[in-house]
């Protein structure tokens, strides 16, 4: 043998997984929701998704180069941030605002913290919240696109279903519509107002299923999140059905499905232990319902997940598994 063989530490086998492949799988899982967004909002969806993706990838590449990091954009994580940020924007938002949000998400929320793996907060959500605070009117203007009643009131004062409920309860003290099979179906397929990525629960669930099969996510966070929302809203509804819609509405309306399936499950910003994931999901659900019921905004998914992101290191520490063998020694 003329050449020496490669010497490295064991193991000498690998599962074949890679960060890039995980990211690609998440992108594939986002396709149904992108299709639903395009069907619902047409050109606006394409405009916002491409603007955010291009801005995210470009700012990731440029900032990495500036900061002298050797990694490029090939891990695809910036593409996901772009799609998810776009998903959290109303269809009428001006392109330049979407670009500002993207640059903020990548440069401030991700690269300044150290790049992939080091960001404490979900960049897409941080970008959305920055836009919401900076441009509140633009971020809460919803276009009508032929949505049938009762989820659209009239052509001028359009709102999301959650917004309709919040306003009606605040002004008249009564629910604006009843939640029945027809409304549920309308919400499920995506015939509602809202951010471009959150309208179709069906498309999001399909993507979630794909990610479960591909092991990009585990069931713990979505189930704990959705379960807590169900439980919380059921208690409210049973207690006072005149002022609270039933759990079915809370599950299908707003950004919950998008948040529970795609945002709260972001690996970097959520716990690594299974028990931690359950705690994290439950916390997200609780905070979401607190905002929905008593907060100033009609929807609380973004805030809930960002707040839980902040406590992820604590959850990890508190849910450290008991080491195998951490039992009392009987005899020497």
């Amino acid at each position: 043998m003329s050449e020496l063989a490669i010497v490295s530490s064991s193991p000498h086998a690998h599962s074949g997984s890679s960060v890039q492949r995980i990211m690609l799988d998440v992108i594939i899982a986002l396709v149904p929701a992108m299709a639903a967004a395009t069907y619902a909002f047409g050109w606006d969806a394409i405009r916002l998704i491409s603007a955010c993706v291009l801005a995210c990838v470009a700012s990731e590449g440029v900032s990495r180069k500036w900061m002298g990091r050797d990694l490029g954009v090939e891990d695809l994580s910036a593409v996901i941030t772009g799609i998810l940020l776009a998903f959290n924007l109303p269809p009428s938002l001006p392109t330049w605002m979407a670009v500002v949000g993207s640059v903020f998400a990548i440069v401030i929320c991700k690269q300044l913290f150290g790049g992939i793996g080091y960001n404490p907060f979900n960049p897409a959500l941080a970008g959305r919240v920055m836009l919401l605070i900076s441009f509140p009117v633009f971020m809460t203007t919803w276009s009508t696109w032929g949505i049938p009643a009762p989820l659209a009131v009239d052509a001028i004062t359009t709102a999301t279903p959650l917004g309709l409920v919040k306003t009606a309860i605040a002004t008249t003290g009564e629910l604006p519509f009843t939640f029945n099979g027809a409304t549920a179906l309308q919400l499920f397929v995506g015939n509602q107002n809202g951010c471009i990525g959150e309208v179709s629960a069906a498309a999001l669930l399909l993507g979630g299923l794909y990610m479960l099969v591909r092991r990009c996510i585990s069931w713990h966070i979505p189930v704990a999140y959705l379960g807590t929302v169900t439980l919380f809203s059921a208690i409210l509804w049973l207690h006072h059905p005149q002022q609270n819609l039933n759990p079915g509405f809370h599950l299908l309306a707003g950004g919950l499905m998008l948040g529970a399936i795609f945002m709260a499950t972001d690996m970097v910003t959520s716990p690594v232990t299974k028990r931690g994931m359950l705690v994290f999901g439950a916390g997200c659900g609780l905070l979401t319902m607190l905002v929905r019921k008593w907060g100033g905004y009609p929807e609380g998914v973004s805030f809930a997940i960002l707040l839980m992101n902040a406590v992820t290191p604590l959850i990890n520490r508190a849910t450290r598994p008991r080491v195998f063998g951490a039992v009392k020694k009987k005899k020497a």
Partner: peptide, 9 residues
């Protein structure tokens, strides 16, 4: 080798 992405696997 890349930074840890906290996938938890």
């Amino acid at each position: 080798s890349m930074p840890c992405i906290s996938c938890g696997r």
